[in-house]
Design a protein around this nucleic acid. Sequence first.
DNA 1: CACAACATTAGACTATGGTCTATGGTTGTG
DNA 2: CACAACCATAGACCATAGTCTAATGTTGTG
Lengths: 120, 120
Amino acid sequence: MLINELSKETGVTPHTIRYYEKFGLIKGKRKADVKSNNYFHYDDEVVYKLELIRDAKAVGFTLSEIKNLIDAWYNKKFTIAKKLAILDEKLVTIDERINQLTEMKKLLSDFKKEVVESDC
Amino acid sequence: MLINELSKETGVTPHTIRYYEKFGLIKGKRKADVKSNNYFHYDDEVVYKLELIRDAKAVGFTLSEIKNLIDAWYNKKFTIAKKLAILDEKLVTIDERINQLTEMKKLLSDFKKEVVESDC
DNA sequence: CACAACATTAGACTATGGTCTATGGTTGTG
DNA sequence: CACAACCATAGACCATAGTCTAATGTTGTG
């Protein structure tokens, strides 16, 4: 599929898709048999990657971290040990973030109680 | 205390403290009885606010959101209802983020299992 | 075939959250 | 009193993650 279709399928604008491509997160291919234009074609793997990017960004990973993750996922040159190292690192980060969020939640809940009780 | 002491106490650089002050997150006071200089003085409330800012930033709140939160905390002009609304909103955000992180954790854990199993 | 809709690249611009530099005045220790 | 260490303001600069514009070529429908 071409960039516009990919954009519609994923909700990521063509601009941002090109930005990600330049960043090395995804890759389109030019068809050798098409000589009249130089359009990039994208497959379902790219769709899945864009969804992964969206999710990973939502939890606060930077594009560089996501690149790392995508390499663990798709780069056949990476050894199993290396892939596991990347995954474990991200899992630790996620746990830390969940802990921080839980603490912040407690802080706000406690303060909320205070505010409610002050109303007497 | 002056800005340098505040910086040492909180680990936030004087530069960033001034940036936060310009942003409206904290406020120093000039002493009326000191005429020879125009130094700002900071009290313990500011120390606490800077710690709150550090924690809130760590969980992904923007400075604008934090400003909001600090207003709920310290702004005496806000009604109790308004304070509770702000707090509830932030609590919802935190829950959403925890859910997203939990999902991402599952995704990575599953993929990790796949990688481990591929090693047979 | 005109013309909209789509494709490409390169480069300028934006917001956020700082960080650094310049300039000039103040305070405290040897 | 020299001089380092400190304070203030203003404005330039940086990275991240886009977003927009310009210039130009291609494709598809009436």
